[in-house]
Design a protein around this nucleic acid. Structure first.
Lengths: 236, 236
DNA sequence: CGACCATTTGATATGGATCAAGCGATGTGG
DNA sequence: CCACATCGCTTGATCCATATCAAATGGTCG
């Protein structure tokens, strides 16, 4: 059922020190980053490269680091003991992940495409937050956003397949701020595991949406939203 | 579909001042409450009484307050425009809700049973958090816990009906710290809307569990867990 | 070109929803 | 105190959306 394969660790994870030497200057800062947290991460963090499908951290590793996607795309997920996989979130450039877990991660994280990820120790961030209320507040905001997304997905999961897919497309278009033309970095299996559906249902739903001229499939990963209003109506 | 009826507001919500006069001393503090936040809420908050099914706040009201259940039980939920309802969470005595929303609530809150709720303005809490890192950290922890619960429910929602119900029973037993004997404060409809199932499916699943001697139904709301191991095995 | 992988498409099976009825507890008025 | 209405819950019969099983198609890379 799970199609994950090559877990190539081209940069060993806990080797923050060695990673630090790699690319502190090559940090291609994507978002403006004038907020205290972004600036702090840029100054104190190290950029690590992760090739497609490589693991960034594991489900029960201690949550010592905080991560920010600088390029590429990351998925976090949980695996049930029977093999089913639930993707908890996709993270696009500029987004922070690894937050909101007390002592240990409750999810694993992998690069979906070749990615650059900024890493900083949580202890450093916590120390800063203890001194600077602005940073504390910002961390709080990031977790609050994460919470809202989780709650939105709970809402999504009680809906029909069509509603879920429509909601997914709108969310992605929104987050990529790509006007109507969406380039999906993830596979159908990833989408299915995110929406709690099967690849077949996702595929069928997409073709159905194309038939009703709501979307257009240039390639399987390049989707054009032709009728946002109709999509919005679908999500309920 | 929705069985909510009598929205009796025996204490008008924004009237914090009048409510304050009601019962600041009747605050039957349930948990030890030596943490800074609990102490602050006790000192600065007001206790309001809400009768069964009365609204505590609405889906798009500004999120000016923070709440703590002192007695009874509260549900938060979202309603889709087609009438479907998703319960986002149940809150038992000692638990805090109303947190994790930026400017306005994204959920509504109602008392499931007659309840006492401690209320404090968010601005007061935020001000405190700005000065006292310990309080800021505690708020953070509360949101992080909320996040974890939301993520757990996402995981629950991709599972079978039996797994969902088993998970629900274990969660409730856990949170009520009532050894094996669980007294559910909520109706089958509430459970169904929480788990993304129908009342019929919830009911059938419970009877099936009883037939396999995993649980015992004293009354419809009093459930005894006869075989926790089996339940745990079911949740996957 | 050929192997491999992701995606689509088709046929069938099934878990849970829906529709419908019965049951038990609780409360209310006569 | 009892008849009866009401409400929450359970049980039964049927239907449908999505899963599952299976195969074809298409795109990519050596």
């Amino acid at each position: 059922m799970l199609t994950q394969t090559t877990i190539r660790h081209d940069s060993i994870h806990p080797a923050l020190k060695s990673a630090r030497s790699v690319a502190p200057t090559s940090a291609r800062v994507v978002i403006a980053g004038t907020e205290p947290l972004a600036e702090t991460m840029r100054l104190m963090g190290a950029v690590m490269s992760h090739s497609r499908n490589s693991e960034i951290f594991g489900q029960s590793e201690s949550a010592d680091y905080l991560y920010k996607v600088m390029g590429g795309c990351v998925r976090t997920y949980k695996t049930l003991n029977d093999g089913r996989r639930q993707i908890s979130g996709f993270y696009l450039p500029g987004e922070v992940f690894g937050l909101g877990y007390d002592d240990e991660h409750t999810v694993s994280a992998e690069a979906i495409a070749d990615s650059k990820v900024l890493v900083i120790t949580r202890s450093a961030v916590n120390a800063l937050a203890g001194h600077d209320p602005a940073i504390a507040r910002e961390l709080f905001t990031v977790v609050a956003r994460e919470l809202r997304r989780a709650q939105d997905r709970v809402l999504l999961l009680i809906k029909s397949a069509q509603e879920r897919v429509a909601g997914f497309l709108l969310e992605m278009a929104d987050r990529m701020s790509a006007n109507d033309a969406v380039e999906l970095p993830m596979s159908r299996q990833d989408i299915a595991d995110y929406l709690g559906l099967t690849i077949e249902t996702v595929s069928r739903t997409l073709t159905a949406l194309e038939c009703s001229a709501v979307i257009e499939l240039l390639t399987s990963r390049q989707i054009v939203l032709r009728n946002r209003a109709a999509l919005s109506r679908m999500v309920g």
